[in-house]
């Protein structure tokens, strides 16, 4: 089992209108993409993570299954999951359109909550630079 390089934290908001399963999937996927969770890492059991987060075990199990279907995780015995090396698939046009739509929706949501356009643009530029840096 590989050791973690740094504290890898998953944060959800129980009062958020976003379903807990979606928050867990998004949070774990972020950690998987940025490299916080490396292949071979053992994730907590469904029961342990559910108890610590305060969500039903089935919610965590569903999140694990979703990420397993995407190829990030391998479901282990006794309700655990292990991070596996994943080959990045080629994005199809439908997925690309979906990504653009979600990005626009996210920006619109930020604007509706009062974030200035300039700040959103700066955040996007910063993320783009991080992505470019990771590629080179």
């Amino acid at each position: 089992m590989l050791m973690y390089r740094m504290p890898v934290t998953l944060r959800i908001d129980l009062a958020s209108p976003v379903p807990a399963v979606r928050q867990i999937v998004d949070g774990l996927r972020l950690l998987l993409v940025v490299g916080g969770l490396e292949p071979g890492t053992q994730l907590p059991s469904v029961r342990r993570l559910g108890t610590d987060l305060g969500v039903h075990f089935n919610t965590v199990a569903e999140a694990y299954r979703t990420l397993a279907a995407e190829g990030w995780l391998e479901i282990a015995r006794r309700g655990g999951a292990r991070v596996v090396a994943r080959k990045t698939p080629r994005a199809d046009p439908e997925a690309a359109a979906g990504f653009q739509r979600r990005l626009r929706e996210l920006i619109a949501d930020g604007q509706s909550r009062g974030f200035p356009r300039g700040r959103i643009a700066r955040e996007l530029r910063r993320l783009a630079e991080t992505l470019e840096g990771a590629r080179s």
């Binding site: 934290t9 998953l10 129980l14 994730l43």
Partner: peptide, 12 residues
């Protein structure tokens, strides 16, 4: 007053 509804778990 509203309590803190955010929960954070260290996976490591």
């Amino acid at each position: 007053v509203p309590g803190d509804s955010a929960v954070e778990v260290n996976l490591g």
